[in-house]
Computed example of a mutant assay.
Amino acid sequence: MTERSDDTHRFAEMALAALKATGLSATPRNYELWFAHAEGKNPALSAHIQKAMDETGKVSQEMADKLYDQLVQHNDISNDVINLVTRFHTEVTDLWDLVEKTGESTSGHNKELTNLSEQLRESTNSYPAVGTLLEGVLSVTKNMMAENAKLENRLAASAEEVTNLQRDVEAIQAEAMRDALTGIANRATFDRSLDKHMNEATEANEPLALVLSDIDHFKKFNDTWGHQTGDQVLRFVADVMNSNVKGKDLLARYGGEEFAIVLPGTSLENAHMLADRIRNAVESRRLRKRRTDEDLGIVTMSMGVALLREGESMESLIDRADSCLYAAKRAGRNRVMDENEYEALAQTDEKGVA
């Protein structure tokens, strides 16, 4: 048994044991969820499960379903990818069969040519029907040319098909990474990118900043104007934020009306300046309802900024940025608060209490 097989069986046993320990049914969804957790390749999923286990000692079925829907399930994408892989496999198999068949045919033609050449050398003394031999040589040559032309045409068609498959795979991959409503990166892409950039920042000993932002009073937009107008607001905010994000920076829809920006190689001060520039840009434009041209007023945002610390986990970095975000909301909204301001505010509160 290979090492990969051993790992797979070990993960499967761990998943089943965890399901039994939590009291959840061993349904395919629950099994897939715990297998992904045991495999350790979905840090966001593992963080949520570990947090729940630490706090309550269990994971409810409701939470398991929510985690599966948010962080595991991609059936529509998976089906497309499976279909593409199947087409690709069929194409390569057919091409290989043709090459193998053509190779056998060419080998047979070569044997015929060799035999005919031997007979031609002997024709003066023992085989007077030279004309017949020459006709045989011409026939074999024509057959070889036809086989080669067939192979060339098939290779050209296969190359075109492989190119189309590559474009389809790239399109599906890009779609899987985007939020359907706003067109920016989705939560899954954010989780993978943040983990990658954190590792790179640690190895290069460079700063990494994280900005979490939230649209103020977003529920009011939905309740007053309807969800379609709410979607319009989300797209507007995403467009404004995206126009201010450059290079390796990543903008993602974190969830609902929350957005996140990963800023590699960026200090806390510069991240704060960027966040405040975005906040001002969003606030400076009045929105109007598309169908009726009604004035929707202005949109404001609250933002929290944190800087990666040595040896810090992804969950810890997100929690600190989130704490800054909600401190900004408590302080009156429509503002940016970084972790230095947050800590200074916390110390002031402690002294006031004392």
Rank of each mutant, 00 (worst) to 15 (best):
L307D: 02
T2Q: 04
A281R: 07
A159C: 08
E203T: 11
T300W: 10
D97K: 14
D69M: 10
R309W: 06
Q73L: 15
V140L: 02
H89N: 15
G311K: 02
A12M: 04
E118M: 03
D69R: 14
I318F: 02
E32V: 05
E104G: 10
S323L: 09
F218Y: 06
D338Y: 03
R277M: 07
M145G: 05
L16D: 07
V81M: 14
V240W: 03
V211W: 07
M198Y: 01
A252K: 01
Q166W: 05
L263H: 00
A344V: 04
V282P: 02
S117Y: 09
K248H: 08
Q70H: 13
D191H: 08
M314A: 12
N115T: 11
Q166L: 09
H227S: 05
M177R: 14
K58N: 13
P207Q: 04
R192D: 12
K329E: 06
E152I: 10
G23Q: 06
V130Q: 05
A260N: 06
H109F: 15
F11W: 14
Y254K: 01
R154Q: 11
K20D: 13
L287K: 02
R288P: 00
E170Y: 04
N115S: 10
E112V: 08
G265V: 00
R279K: 11
K220H: 13
S5H: 13
N143P: 00
N334D: 13
T90V: 13
R235V: 13
G226H: 03
L84H: 09
E203R: 15
E258W: 08
E147G: 03
P264G: 02
W225V: 04
A12G: 03
E147R: 08
F259Q: 05
L194D: 00
N153T: 12
S267M: 04
R154A: 15
G230E: 04
R320N: 07
A328E: 04
E175V: 06
A17R: 12
A188V: 07
G40N: 08
A275Q: 00
Q73C: 15
L181Q: 03
N115L: 06
L138C: 11
R167G: 04
